[in-house]
Every structure is written in structure tokens, then in C-alpha cells.
């Protein structure tokens, strides 16, 4: 067993988290269906899914540790490595590419000194190329945390990243869908 703790801390749930997990598990006829929700909770709590964290998740949902790791390894949003504080996930699939995704990626790359894992030395950013995020009509676009930043231009990217750097909480971006009016005018 891996006994080195996650980031030097012991991994465990709080009472409150345990209660939440029980509530989640009660939504499904089988406890192991709580796997993805619990992996998400673990990722929010611990930042990423180290081996000790995966063991905790496995124990929580009642599967062997190998299963928790297999599931985590399958899904791209579950972090198997630590990342920077802001993960810039730029879509590079066809529709976004047709509208300049590569230009946006090159622009971001030129702004910082990313290492081979896509992290900046200060731990602030991680740059990731991701596949289609269902925002193809408003590309190029990127996801940071939960938010979509759409119709990106180099200037818009500068503005967004400057916001992250300043540490000021940014206004939540309005999804393109909110602006969407074209076929509704008639």
C-alpha cells in the first residue's frame, strides 16, 4: 500500500462530507455509482487524485483501489497529477481550429514559460489542449475551472489572464448562450 500521505496530509473525509456522500449514494441503486461524484469531491478537496486519495475513494464507494484508479485514468477531467491554480483548457478540435484555436494556443504559449507538463514555474497556470467542449459556434474558446470563455481573441486572452494574475476575482463570464439572439429576432 502506498502510505505516503497526500501532500503530507492524512486523507480523510469530514463528518459533513461523509453525510453528503451518503446522500449522493442514496440516489442510485448501487453504491459504486457514487464513484464519479466522490472522485469529483475528492478532487475539489485535495486538488488532485494522488494514490492515497484514490485509496480513500475506493474505500468510500466499496471497490478495490485498482478500480478507483482505473476509473480516474479513463476520464480526462480527473487530475492524476498536480496542476497550476488555473488550468487553461483550450479547445483545439475542428470547429475551433477553423476559427483560430492554434493562434490562441500559440499566443498563450508565448506569454509564459511552460514546462513539458504545461505548468508555469509559479504554479499559477497550466495550459492544456482539450477536445471539443460543445461551444463550437463560439470558438475559439477555453474552459477555466467551471467557466467557458468564448470567442477568444489574443486581446481577450490577455485581459482574462491579466485578471487571473492580479488575483482579483473575475466576473463570471456570460456564456455565449445568454447573448444568443440571431434566430430569435423574427
Amino acid at each position: 500500500m502506498t502510505d505516503q500521505a497526500h501532500n503530507g496530509e492524512k486523507v480523510a473525509w469530514t463528518e459533513q462530507e461523509l453525510a453528503e456522500i451518503e446522500e449522493i449514494a442514496s440516489r442510485y441503486p448501487s453504491r459504486r455509482s457514487a464513484m464519479l461524484p466522490v472522485l469529483w469531491m475528492a478532487q475539489h478537496k485535495f486538488g488532485w487524485l494522488s494514490l492515497p486519495v484514490l485509496e480513500l475513494v475506493a474505500e468510500t464507494v466499496g471497490v478495490p483501489p485498482s478500480e478507483a484508479r482505473a476509473v480516474a485514468s479513463f476520464y480526462t477531467m480527473l487530475k492524476k497529477k498536480p496542476t497550476g491554480r488555473y488550468v487553461l483548457q483550450v479547445c483545439h478540435t475542428l470547429s475551433c481550429a477553423l476559427n483560430g484555436a492554434e493562434e490562441i494556443i500559440r499566443h498563450i504559449e508565448s506569454k509564459y514559460d511552460f514546462d513539458e507538463n504545461g505548468n508555469t514555474p509559479d504554479g499559477l497556470f497550466t495550459l492544456e489542449r482539450v477536445e471539443c467542449l460543445a461551444s463550437c459556434g463560439s470558438g475559439p474558446m477555453m474552459q477555466v475551472g467551471e467557466h467557458y470563455y468564448e470567442r477568444l481573441t489574443p486581446e481577450k486572452v490577455d485581459e482574462i489572464l491579466a485578471g487571473f494574475e492580479s488575483g482579483e476575482p473575475l466576473p463570471t463570464p456570460r456564456p455565449e448562450a445568454d447573448e444568443w439572439q440571431w434566430n430569435l429576432q423574427s
Binding site: P65, S66, R69, A70, S73
Partner: peptide, 18 residues
């Protein structure tokens, strides 16, 4: 349940929990 196929695509790899 020790053995699992980790990852996906052609990077699928058989193994046990490290």
C-alpha cells in the same frame, strides 16, 4: 479485483494499483 486496464485509447495498460 486487483487487475485493471488503466487509461483508454491505445494507451490502455494492464496493471495493478501501484
Amino acid at each position: 479485483g486487483e487487475l485493471r486496464l488503466f487509461n483508454r485509447t491505445d494507451h490502455t495498460e494492464i496493471g495493478v494499483f501501484p
